[in-house]
Design a protein around this nucleic acid. Sequence first.
DNA 1: CCGTTAATTGAACGCGCGTTTAAATAGTGC
DNA 2: GCACTATTTAAACGCGCGTTCAATTAACGG
Lengths: 203, 203
Amino acid sequence: MTAANVRADLLAAASAAFGARGYAAVSLRDVAKQAGTTAAMVAYYFGDKDGLFAALLEEALTGVLERVRAGLAARAASGAPPASLDVFFDVAHDALGATPWIPQLVVREVLSEGAPFRERFIAKYAIPMSQLLRGSLRAEIAAGRLRADLDVDLAFASLVGLAAFPFIAQPVLERALGARFDAAFRTRLAAHTKRLFLEGARA
Amino acid sequence: MTAANVRADLLAAASAAFGARGYAAVSLRDVAKQAGTTAAMVAYYFGDKDGLFAALLEEALTGVLERVRAGLAARAASGAPPASLDVFFDVAHDALGATPWIPQLVVREVLSEGAPFRERFIAKYAIPMSQLLRGSLRAEIAAGRLRADLDVDLAFASLVGLAAFPFIAQPVLERALGARFDAAFRTRLAAHTKRLFLEGARA
DNA sequence: CCGTTAATTGAACGCGCGTTTAAATAGTGC
DNA sequence: GCACTATTTAAACGCGCGTTCAATTAACGG
């Protein structure tokens, strides 16, 4: 076992545990045991519990914003359908397939009052993403593909909610619908969501 | 101060605190101090911390399901537009205006693995609500008001997600959009959401 | 092979948690 | 006014938490 393994194992164990049970409810002894090491290693690699969480959030979110940004830029250059919002749905679909625990984790921890990552998350991810998507929405409206009286701010909220909510509510949905969140289901979900939004907002 | 006051004050303080910071992160000493009493009173009235949470969840959710059920039955009897789904949007709008902290609380605590209220919530609220709404969706499809190829299960998820997500993400949305979640905003939001879904799913 | 640094260990620290308990007080029916 | 119960108090209990620390082992360049 090299050093990098311990660090990575801690991050993996922490992701699973925080995602499933929440930051405050998970002890570092739990995480360490799951990772096959001790709580003192968290202090060694991440400083403290907050540092561990920040590192894991950073690792999961870094790249997503940039992929959306890059995808949108590419589509803007080429113009034409599939509309620029497809980029968001596609990147969201990919990212959620890879790290489906992220929405639950963000919703539970970042939205908590006094969470140390809250301001950072808002400034670094939420606000840029909202600007990006609202810009896309306005461009689609200008291009005549979305209706002119669409409320761009609220449509942004709807966009994120439609994509993220099923993953937030996953355990309940699985039970209420008798479905498994496997790859096939997520693909079906992505297609449904995209169509619902685009037809609901079309010109 | 009568006894009922202490109990009610504890429930109110617990709602605010659990909603804002999460079950595990909130101590009974915090709640009690906010309610102007002591942690021992929680044991007296609710048995333990779980009992307090269960009572508060019960109080907030009881009635909502029945209101939806009653509204749907009334609409089914009278038939005709406004479509039966309007009942859901209207009840959701009312309930979310009265207790906007509920979605955050449910999402954070009920969805947690091992949460003692999870099974109860699923059996008592989530599954009945899903049956109710999926029934409505099928009826609307049969009536020709929603498109025949609509995925009813996923549309149920979209419905709840569209209504609940803005309240889940409220603190971030307020910052990202520069908006306040006042009554006017919630009304605007309800109208937007209803239209987006109904046009996105219409026949 | 040695000196130095990196990595890991296991025990300990103080703290705040949920809960319990025994005593004090308020309220109530007779 | 008295017996009895309901309510409230304040202190204490044990426990597990995040964190610290000195000691130990592994890794590695000269």
